[in-house]
Design a protein around this nucleic acid. Structure first.
Lengths: 223, 223
DNA sequence: GATAGTTTCATACAACTGTTTGAATTGCAA
DNA sequence: TTGCAATTCAAACAGTTGTATGAAACTATC
């Protein structure tokens, strides 16, 4: 074990390079040069390039999932086993959005890395994402408890659309900024979270609980 | 020019292999073997590997965009320059969804290729997608005309969320099927289109035109 | 049927990739 | 200090990749 200095230097360098240049453009030689370590150190400490990438992604992924579940658990405890659907959806998309968006010039390396991982889909990361289903099932359960008279199919579609809006907004944040000529402020993360949650909520509740549904989904900034 | 047989054999083989195995796994040697042509033929006919990929994607992309604009134009002409927002959104996401989803065992090579292009994001394809903004602006224009009292910001967000739901559903169709244990039927494309359009519509109109908004967004299959 | 232009072909190239090797070095315990 | 394991290092390995070359085969025109 010793100091682990080499190991963490590789992790830091790799995360930074991948964040900046993407997975396709960065070789092990780039990484070890940035980290000032020997080429063989990567295979010594991580086994392979893919395992290095996997470790980077898993670390961040676990952190996000923990935040999600913490928010969910807190909400359900406060509501005596049942949380409002808005709060559940906020727990689902909030941590991801907060982890990736925010003022561009002060985005952490981790944030930029996760955006890359969301845009480029390399095998080791895809493998990990496929294991995420069990995690999502916990949200399905909470959503069922929150909306007991909604069918499973509706729940699944609502969850799918909520994740869709969050991930797509992250992936295509640059394009949305360009398309809207800066009118869509992606630096205001809490506003983005509120928009996604609002639309997902209304999608799941429209026609059933009109009284509880937010009156205006996207109309926050209506003139 | 001659028969162009070699050229089209390469295109067909490449599309099939990329659709089946993804961009990362397929080499030029795989393609020319599948097409029964010489290795040098790719560079002779297309210049480079990236230009081959670009040509494949551009072809399908142009076809989809043409369908989209045709639906949009027809709708606006029928409505005297103004189309209902649902119809505009349907023109936006319908062709893409129809082009990619549908019964798994009878999906065309083109469909499976476009799904790949949506999942794996390789440089030549990314470059083309970035040019798509002008195309989207035409939909922004139509949406403005349809919803004259909605602010631009709302329009942009609505467009973003509509595309998000469509593309994410395509990208993650397998995962949604697995998560829902088959309860979400992604083979019923028109149902998927209706769901996406419904949610996007309600997101854009909620709180303004309650009378026109569909009463139940996701409630089609409520028990 | 010779000629010019296009297309095909086998082959080589040059560069880059992740990984392995085995020796050198380091750090720590006895 | 000695000995042993963990770590670092330079170097090479083995394979693959997209691309280039120059001759051969083909095609159509005159």
């Amino acid at each position: 074990m010793a100091s682990d200095h080499t190991r963490s230097a590789i992790l830091a360098a790799a995360e930074r390079l991948y964040a900046d240049r993407g997975f396709g453009d960065v070789t092990l030689r780039d990484i070890v040069a940035e980290a000032n370590v020997n080429l063989a150190a990567v295979n010594y400490h991580f086994g392979s390039k893919d395992e290095l990438i996997a470790e980077l992604f898993v670390t961040r992924s676990i952190a996000t999932n923990r935040e999600r579940l913490h928010e969910l658990k807190t909400a359900e405890e406060q509501g005596g086993g049942r949380a409002p659907i808005e709060v559940i959806l906020r727990a689902l998309v909030g941590p991801t959005l907060r982890g990736c968006l925010g003022p561009q010039n002060q985005r952490s390396t981790a944030a930029r890395f996760m955006i890359r991982a969301s845009i480029e889909s390399v095998p080791p990361i895809r493998r990990i994402k496929n294991r995420e289903i069990d995690h999502l099932r916990k949200f399905v359960g909470a959503m069922r408890r929150s909306l007991p008279d909604r069918s499973d199919v509706e729940i699944y579609w609502g969850l799918n659309f909520a994740l869709a809006m969050a991930h797509h907004t992250i992936r295509e944040s640059e394009r949305l900024t360009k398309l809207s000529e800066g009118k869509c402020d992606l630096d205001d993360v809490e506003d983005v979270v509120a928009r996604v949650v609002s639309v997902a909520t209304i999608a799941l509740t429209a026609g059933r609980m009109e009284a509880k549904a937010p009156a205006r989904a996207l109309a926050r900034d209506a003139r």
